[in-house]
Design a protein around this nucleic acid. Structure first.
Lengths: 249, 249
DNA sequence: CCAATGGATATGTCTATACATTATCAAAAA
DNA sequence: TTTTTGATAATGTATAGACATATCCATTGG
C-alpha cells in the first residue's frame, strides 16, 4: 500500500482549495474588507493552473458575497452588510432532541372545518377545508411551546387520516410534504391567560413567537404559530457572515 | 437604430438564464422536490450551448442548495430542510427610515473604562479599555429600542473621539470599521423597571432582544444588546428558501 | 485647465475537449 | 440464486483559447 496521498486529505479540487485559501485569509484578517485580492493571472501562476480554475473559485466567492469584482480594477474584499445573514431555524423536535432533552407532543384540540376566518381563507381559499390542530411541545416532559396549526386539506388530504395525538404535525409535514417556499416571522408577546395556563408559566411573561407559512409550488400547505416559553427556551439564532459560503467538511 | 435586443433585457448571460429558468420551475412547482431535472446533455441541446455553460448554471443551483447532483443518476430537486434559511437583519437606522419613519438617536450614558465585567473582558481582554454607550433609538420621535453597547477601544481607537450624542453608534461602526464576522442571538424578555421607564411602555411588557457580537479578523469590535418595544416594533424576519440563490435585478 | 479619445487591462462569458470519478445496470461467474 | 465484474452514463474537474465588456489611465485636443 503506497501512500500516494494522505487519506485524511482526499485531494481537494484545486478551485475549492483556492477558494478556501482566500476565505481563510478573509476570516483571519490577512485580507481585510476593501483590500485588493490578487489578480486572476497572478493566482494562475501561484497555483500553476488555468484562469478558468481561478475564475471558478473567485466567482463562487463573489456569488457568496465575500468579494467584489470590478473589470479593469480588480477584485476586492467586500464590505459586509448587516442584512442577509444566515440563520438556523430548526424543526422544534430536532432542536430539542439535539440538545439532549426528550421530546414529546400532546394534542389539545383537533377539528376539521371549512375556512371561515381570514387566516383560514388565506390558506385554503373560499370554502376550502382546513385541519385545525392545537397542541403542546414538551421538552423533558415540561411544556415548552404552544402550537396552533392550520393545514390545507386540499393540498395535503392524507393529513386527515393521521393520528397526531402524540406526533408533532410539523415534523410529519416536513417529511410527508416537501415544501418549496417558507415565510417566517419572529415576534414577542406577553403571555395571556390561555398561554399562562397551557405553558404553566406566570401571567404576563415574555414569549417568543414564531409564525411560519409554507408553500409547495403555488399551493399553500400550512400556517403555524409556535409560542415559546421565554424563560426556559430561547429561540436562539446563531449566525456568521462567512457561512454564506459553502460549509466545510 | 436597429433593435438587436430589447433594451429592457440587457442580454442576460446564458448560464444565468438557464439558472433562472430552473429556479422558476422549482418555485412554481413545475419541478417538485425529489423530481429529476433534465440531464446536462439534454439542456445542452435545449439551449444550444456547451456543457460547461449548463454545468455552470447547475453548479450554482447545487451550491445554493436547491438541487442535488448524483453521478450516473442525474440531478434532482432537493428536499428542503427547515434550517439554514436567509434572514434580513438590517441596521436599525436603515430599517426605520426604510419604513418611512424619521430616525433619531439619543445618547443616555457614555463612559470609558477598563474591562472588569465578564462581558467587557470577553470584548477587550484583561485590562483592555472599553467605550460603554447607552442610548435610545427613536422612530418618529418615540423611543423604539434601548441600546447598550461596548466598543473595544484597542480595535477602534477613533471611536473615543466621536460624538455619539445624536448618532447611532452601530451605524457609525458599520461604515467606519468593516467587520468580517457577526454572531446574533434573538430572545424575548419582560420589561423591567428600567426598560419601562426608558421606553415609556408598561411594566412587564414583552420585548424582543437582539444581541450581537462582531469581529474584524481575529479582533473583537463590539458587543451590543438592542431591546425593542414589543408592541410598536416587531423584529420581523421575512425569509424564503429560494433567496439562498442569487437575488433578481 | 478641462474634456474627449483611445489603448490597455482585468474580469465575464463561452466553447470544445479531455480525463477523472462514481453510481447504476446488466452480464458473467460462483 | 447470489456475488462479482465490467461496461456505461452521468457529473466533476481542468485546460487553452477566443471574444465581449467595462473601466482606468494617459494622451490629445480644445
Amino acid at each position: 500500500m503506497t501512500a500516494l496521498s494522505d487519506p485524511g486529505k482526499p485531494a481537494l479540487p484545486l478551485h475549492v482549495q483556492i477558494r478556501r485559501d482566500l476565505e481563510d485569509q478573509i476570516r483571519s484578517g490577512v485580507l481585510m474588507p476593501g483590500q485588493k485580492v490578487a489578480f486572476e493571472h497572478e493566482l494562475m501562476t501561484v497555483y500553476n493552473c488555468s484562469r478558468m480554475t481561478v475564475n471558478k473559485a473567485m466567482s463562487a466567492l463573489s456569488a457568496a458575497g465575500l468579494i467584489e469584482r470590478r473589470k479593469r480594477a480588480g477584485t476586492f474584499v467586500k464590505l459586509p452588510r448587516l442584512d442577509s445573514t444566515v440563520i438556523d431555524i430548526p424543526d422544534i423536535q430536532i432542536d430539542i432532541t439535539a440538545r439532549g432533552e426528550s421530546y414529546g407532543f400532546e394534542l389539545t384540540e383537533r377539528r376539521v372545518r371549512t375556512a371561515v376566518t381570514a387566516k383560514e381563507r388565506e390558506l385554503a381559499g373560499e370554502d376550502g377545508r382546513v385541519l385545525c390542530l392545537t397542541g403542546l411541545h414538551l421538552a423533558s416532559g415540561k411544556p415548552l411551546a404552544v402550537e396552533e396549526r392550520l393545514i390545507n386539506l386540499a393540498a395535503v388530504p392524507q393529513a386527515e387520516a393521521v393520528d397526531f395525538s402524540h406526533m408533532s404535525p410539523g415534523h410529519w409535514l416536513l417529511e410527508a410534504v416537501p415544501w418549496t417556499q417558507v415565510e417566517n416571522e419572529i415576534s414577542a408577546t406577553e403571555a395571556d391567560a390561555e398561554l399562562t395556563r397551557r405553558l404553566g408559566i406566570e401571567k404576563g411573561q415574555a414569549c417568543l413567537v414564531l409564525d411560519r407559512r409554507t408553500w409547495s409550488g403555488p399551493e399553500r400547505i400550512t400556517t403555524v404559530r409556535q409560542t415559546y416559553d421565554g424563560t426556559r427556551y430561547r429561540l436562539v439564532a446563531h449566525f456568521d457572515t462567512l457561512r454564506r459560503s459553502a460549509p466545510r467538511p
